[in-house]
Design a protein around this nucleic acid. Structure first.
Lengths: 199, 199
DNA sequence: GTCTATATTTGGATAGAC
DNA sequence: GTCTATCCAAATATAGAC
C-alpha cells in the first residue's frame, strides 16, 4: 500500500516535482472514476490519460490499490476541510442542520467519492492505516459536534448517522444531480430534533 | 441481456433440465458474490465452481451482464416474496414497524444483494427492462403500504425511504452480521410516526 | 449441451537501458 | 524519472467438433 519512493528532504526540487506529478495523476484518477465508476479504473487508461506509459505510474504508486488508497485519503481530507470551515451554532437544531447540509451536500457532489469513502465495493481493497486514520478523524469530528449540542447517547448518534447517510445515498441513487432529498434535510433535522430534544 | 435460448414448451424435459442448471449456476453466483463482492465475479471462476468449462456458460447466459441481470431479478423477487408474506396491521405505526423490519432485515442479510439491487457499482451494468419491472413492482408495493396507512405526501415517503435505507446501509457498513442499527428500528419508526402523524 | 481450441483484449506488474 | 520490451495472468467471447 505504501509507495516505493521514500520521502526525500522537503526542499529538494525533485521532491516537489514528484509530488506535483503525483497530484496530477490523482486528479486525473478522480476524473476517471467520476466518469466511469470506481470499479472501472485501470492503470493503463490512467497512464494514457496523463500521457505516460503505464509502467511509469509505478514510480508514483506501488500498485493500483495504492492509487485507491490515496484517493480514499484525499476524499477524507476534503471532507475534513469542510468541517474546518463549519461555524457551529449554539442552537442545537441549527448546528444539526449545518452538519447535515454539509454532509449530504458533500455526498451528493460526487457519487464515486461517496462509494469510495463509505461503501466497500472494490474487491480486496481496504485503506492503509494512515489513510484510515483520516477517516477516523472525520468520524470523530462529526461525533464531537453532536456531543457538543448535548447528544451523548450512542443510539442517538447512530440514528443520526443513519438518517444523514440515508438522505445521501437516496439522493445519489434516485436523483443524481438534483435536490429531491437535499430539500428534505431541514425536515429531517426537525424530526430528529423533536425526537431527541423534545419540542 | 436476453438469453441465447428461446423458451421451449414447458413440458419439454430438456427445458426443465436447462432451467435447473441455470438455477444452479445462479445459486453458485450468489455464493460467490457474497464471498468476494459483486465486482469480483468472473465467468471463469463461476464455471469452475459449477464444474463446467467457462465457454459452456454461454449456453445459459449470453454475457456476464446477463448473469448480473438474473441476479438482480432474483433479488427483487426475493424481496417481493417477503412483502407477500407480510401481514399489514391496521395500526399505522405497527404497519411501519413491520415494513421497516422487513426491509432492514432483508438488506442486512446480504451485502452483495443490497449492493446489486440498490447501489450502482458495476461498471456499465444496468438491468434489463424485464428485470427492472420487478424492481418497480417492489417499489410500488412499499409505497402502497405507506399510502395504506394514510401517508400520501411524497416528501413523507422520500423521508421514509431515506430513513430505512440509511439504517440498512449503516448496518451493513458499520456492523455487518450484528444488530447495532437493527435495534434502532422501532426507535426510528417512533420518531418518524410522531413526526408525520403527531403523537 | 458440453467440450477443445482459440481469438482477442485487457489487466497488473517487473527488468533494464537510457 | 521515463522509456522499451516483456511477462504473465486473467478476462470475455466465438467457432466448430462431438
Amino acid at each position: 500500500m505504501a509507495d516505493k519512493t521514500a520521502a526525500p528532504p522537503r526542499r529538494d526540487r525533485r521532491y516537489a516535482r514528484h509530488q506535483a506529478t503525483k497530484r496530477e495523476i490523482l486528479d486525473t484518477a478522480w476524473k476517471m472514476v467520476r466518469d466511469d465508476g470506481v470499479n472501472a479504473l485501470s492503470l493503463r487508461a490512467l497512464a494514457r490519460a496523463v500521457d505516460m506509459e503505464p509502467q511509469s505510474l509505478y514510480t508514483y504508486f506501488a500498485s493500483k490499490h495504492s492509487v485507491y488508497d490515496h484517493l480514499f485519503a484525499d476524499g477524507n481530507r476534503q471532507l475534513l476541510a469542510r468541517f474546518d470551515l463549519l461555524a457551529v451554532s449554539d442552537d442545537p437544531r441549527r448546528a444539526l442542520q449545518a452538519v447535515a447540509r454539509l454532509f449530504v451536500t458533500f455526498a451528493a457532489e460526487d457519487q464515486a467519492r461517496y462509494e469510495l469513502l463509505f461503501l466497500r465495493t472494490i474487491p480486496d481493497f481496504e485503506p492503509s492505516p494512515e489513510s484510515y486514520a483520516i477517516a477516523v478523524e472525520v468520524f470523530a469530528r462529526g461525533r464531537s459536534i453532536l456531543t457538543g449540542v448535548g447528544l451523548n447517547n450512542p443510539d442517538d448518534f447512530d440514528l443520526w448517522t443513519a438518517l444523514v447517510s440515508g438522505l445521501s445515498s437516496q439522493q445519489l441513487a434516485n436523483d443524481p444531480g438534483g435536490d429531491r432529498y437535499i430539500r428534505l434535510i431541514d425536515n429531517a433535522v426537525a424530526m430528529f430534533s423533536e425526537h431527541v430534544f423534545g419540542r
